[in-house]
Each structure stands twice: as structure tokens, then as C-alpha cells.
Design a protein around this nucleic acid. Sequence first.
RNA 1: GGGGGUUUGCCCGAGUGGUUAAAGGGGGCGGACUGUAAAUCCGCUGGCUACGCCUACAUUGGUUCGAAUCCAAUAGCCCCCA
Length: 429
Amino acid sequence: MPEQDLIAELRWRGLIHQVTDEPALAKQLASGPQTVYIGFDPTATSLHVGSMMQLMMLRRFQQFGHRPIALVGGATGMIGDPSGKSEERNLLTAEQLQENIAGVREQISRFLSFDGDNAAILLNNFDWMKDFSYLDFLRDVGKNFPVGAMMGKESVRARLGSEAGLSYTEFSYMLLQAYDFVHLCKEYDCQIQAGGSDQWGNVTAGIDLTRRMLGRQVFGITAPLLTTSDGRKMGKTESGAVWLDRDRTSPYAFYQYWINVNDEDVMRCIAYLTEIPRDEYDSLAESTQSDPGRRVAQKRLAEWMTQFVHGDEGLNAALSASKILFGGEIERMDDQALVEIFADVPSQELSRDLLSGEGFWIVEAFQQAGLAKSGGEARRAIKDGGAYVNNQRVSDMDQRLTESDLASESVMVLRKGKRNYALLRFTGR
RNA sequence: GGGGGUUUGCCCGAGUGGUUAAAGGGGGCGGACUGUAAAUCCGCUGGCUACGCCUACAUUGGUUCGAAUCCAAUAGCCCCCA
């Protein structure tokens, strides 16, 4: 692919929020392969969909022949970036940080190519920060930071104006990140730092520092944040963030998240997060416009994302689970298949004896399954017509469950409302 | 330190002696509609061995046949004077 198209590619996808000296950067990009870096905070053992933007950004650079550096913030993670945070962060423990770094590294490595002329590089800034003494750092780096300029940064101003305040530690964060850029520029000839728009302050701090310390012009480019049309951050559900790690967010839940994206947001997600090309994008946009009910764009987005993050088998699992959970009869299935499909659903093990004799009272069953906090709540669900056993509505308050109500050898599928499922497994004797 | 006010169910907020498990709104949960959406509409929203019983209106103790409603003390919050 011709290098000069990168900017155009990023632009039509809406991925350029701010750039420093765009004409010079365009020239630089056109002059040959460049090295670009993005930092990732090891705040958890997994990245979430918010970080996908950054990951994809590196991929896009790589696809256009540039060399990406993914920097895991082992050192900066010890401090905590105040950008966009309204309160002082708790410091992570050393062990926690180690685990996080390992998890994040593993994930990043899955999405970049480590072969060829422009093989990606994975670094940890702890490696060059660990031997930097406090005194040396103050003399070499700190000296180049006018406090006035630091005070002007949005991330600092926001916090100083609030009750939460800002510790010296977090105040110093930007020096560390800025120095990363200097280091990468010196050691890897890295001249571009990318990131989310909340990183603008840190990025420009790095650019200034590089100019002062190395006398070199380097560039910054930030992408917009992934937000919904009403301004909220995307990638959050009631139960928390949407993670890339299948143990935290199953392929099914991941798929469902994207399927449910609003019409107003879906095209932006496709542009920002996928590599679906322009012409298909246009036809999806057209379809969303003319026939929103079919949700062609949502399906494509969910499919692409799930496939990309969880592979073919992840996507297949998500698709088959979705099919059953949103309609299908549940009958004559086997334990194995049921448990797989309902992998996300809470389950309870109960004694099989409950099913013999009189049977197991439906109200009690819903309580045990965790679908109702009290008997009253369970009764209400039944009265309101919102209680289902194996996807069939229950109307009789006094119903007793027996072996004939099992959906498979030992499992019963209870549901309250549209989507609240729970499994009861009747085992033992 | 003195004076006044306030305290209600998940939240806000009516209610000043008896059909009050407590108006109304929000939220939540169901249902209908729908596109596994949004909007809209409807129902439910203390517990239980459930047409009955129990526990609830800051806490404790009183008055009364009967109190969330009256009295007293205690605690929290708010305001005014010093």
C-alpha cells in the first residue's frame, strides 16, 4: 500500500482528533517507513474495548508499512496517569502489576505482526526507568519541564480545580511518559506517538521534551475517544467493562455487546475498530439508513469483532448461543451442549431428590436459581407472566418441577424476563 | 453556648391520631409493541408457611381503644444569633 494513504485512511475513519504539524508529519510519512508508538496502561490483566482503538491504530500503521512499538507501562503503571481521572488512583501492588503486564503483553502480541521488515516491537518502559536515579532524573529530565507549562495541561488543571486534588506523584506522571518518547526516539528512531485524545497533554509533553533533549522534531497524533452518541464511554455494561479476555467477557457476551450497539453509534464503531474497507462501510451505512430494522451493520460489526478477538470458534460459539437464547425451544438437549451454550449463566447445583415425590416448588426454584431475591419476587414474576422454564412460560404459582421438566439429563433452564437465565443442575442422589 | 427547623420505603417527596404497607415522581423488575433497539403504553415494586399473618415512617420511652402522625429524651442534618 502506498504510504501517503495512511493519513487519508485515518481521516475517513474519523480517527484523527488532533495532530501536531500535519503537513510535516504527512511529509515524514511519505518519505518512508516510520516508527510509531502507543503506550498501554497495565491497569488490569486484560485490555478492554477502549484499548482496541489504540491496538487497531498500531495495526493500521503497520499495514501501511510502518513499524509499531507497543509500550507497556510497567514504570508509568506504578505511578498512575491522572489524565481523565477525577480522583487520585490507588497504587497497584508489585505483584498485581507484574500479572497485569504479562496479561497485557500477551494480548497485544496477538494483534500485531512480529514478522517482516516492519515487525512490531513490544517494550516495557520499566526496563529503562528502573536504573534511572531520582537525582539523575530531576537533573536530566525535570530541568526541562517548566512548571508553568505543566500547570497548563488539562489533566492537571482539572484535578487542581477539584476537591480530589493531585498528588506530587501523579503530577510527575507526564515526565515519565514524556521521557519514554525521548528514549524511543533515541533508541528506536521513533518519531510518532499516537494515543487517545485524553493523551494529548502527555503526547505534547513528550514532543517538547524530545525537542529540548535531542533537538529533534517528533510528532503526535490522537484519536477520538470511543463514546456513544450521547457522550458516554463505550465498552461498558452494567456488569462492567467489556474485556478482550474470554475469561472476563465470554465470546457470547462480547458478541452481544456489539449486536446491541445503537444505530447512531454503529457506523462509528465500524470505522474506528474494524478493518472493514470503505466500500463495504458505505453500503453498511446505506443499509442502516434505509432499513435499520435488519441491523446489517450491527451484525457485521459483532461478527467482525468477535472473529477478530476470539477467532472462528469463538464466533461460532457466540452465534449458536445467541440463537438458542433468543428464541429457540429448549428440549431434548444434552448436558454438555446446554452447559456450553449457557456458559455465562449462573448455575446452581441441587439435589436430584428434590424432583422426586411432590416435586420442587417453582417459587422455591426461582429463588434458589438466584432469579428472585424473595418468594414474593418469584411469585410476582410468575403473576406478571415473566417466568419461564426451558423457555416456556409458567403461569401456575403452585407448579411443581419434576424430572419431566429437565431439559437434558440433569439440567433445567430457568428464565425471568427476556434475558435473565439461570441453570439448575440436579445431581447426586 | 442560645433559638428555630428537619429526619418517611432503593432515591426524591406527600402525609399531622383511625379504610396508611403509607399519595406522587424517579429508579428497578415484568408484560405488550418492536429491530435481541429507542420511544411509547400497561402492571408490579417490605417479608412470610400468603385471601391471613408479621415487620416498617431516625432511635428509645410515653399518651391513647388506636400513632408515621401527639409528648419526652437521644442521635444525624440544616439555618439564625453569639
